[in-house]
């Protein structure tokens, strides 16, 4: 996993609430057995018409936002299906952070597994970023160490983040390797439970 420290990138506004993972990446793109290459399906229904042509009005199709690295979205981003293809597709497209007032739980977790930073800000701050992102200069800076987002006009907003998650994100640490350091505790737990709940063994 790639480490996330600091990001200066164009921000694309997507002022809709409850953007679910079916919208982020529709199911026809879930049939892959690979992780890479999912950018083609990102926001498919918004980006392309029935003939597969780009819809010019959609924000990520506009020249000013084609290279966006940050998405500013409405409440409850990433609800719905648990598909990790959603963060994979966002990252494959080049999005490295999403800013919203709230995120759905599974999506939020999945982001951290992949080095995509979900930033929670207050409604008025998200609104402010949304408005500024619509303007000519729409580069925002995110500093994970300082837990801050700097808007195009230079306003600084700070955000909360779980310190453990932050530390891992800063280092790009793999969770499995970390858990396996506790392998002996897992062994102990298993032998204890095998005695206490024997009916679960050899099921």
């Amino acid at each position: 996993m790639q480490a996330f420290t600091r990001l200066d990138a164009q921000a694309a506004p997507l002022p809709l609430a409850n953007i679910d993972t079916d919208q982020i990446i529709p199911k026809q793109f879930l049939k892959t057995v690979e992780r890479a290459g999912l950018a083609k399906g990102l926001f498919y229904e918004y980006r392309f018409d029935e003939q597969g042509r780009e819809k010019p009005e959609f924000v990520l199709n506009q020249p000013a936002y084609k290279n966006a690295g940050v998405l500013v979205a409405g409440d409850n981003f990433g609800c719905g299906s648990s598909r990790e293809h959603a963060p994979w597709a966002l990252m494959d497209f080049g999005i490295k952070a999403v800013i919203s007032t709230s995120f759905a739980d599974i999506f939020y977790n999945n982001c951290f597994q992949n080095g995509l930073l979900p930033v929670v800000l207050k409604a008025e701050q998200v609104q402010q970023l949304m408005d500024e992102a619509r303007g000519g200069n729409h580069v925002v800076s995110i500093d994970l160490e300082a837990q801050s987002v700097t808007s195009p006009s230079g306003q600084v907003f700070t955000f909360e983040i779980d310190p453990k998650r932050k530390a891992k994100m800063l280092k790009g640490l793999d969770a499995i390797g970390e858990t396996l350091e506790a392998a002996s505790a897992i062994d102990t737990y298993e032998s204890k439970v095998a005695l206490a709940r024997p009916w679960l063994e050899g099921a």
Partner: peptide, 11 residues
């Protein structure tokens, strides 16, 4: 998610 599926399979 799938990364967690991998985590559960392994640990």
């Amino acid at each position: 998610g799938t990364s967690e599926v991998e985590h559960v399979l392994a640990t």
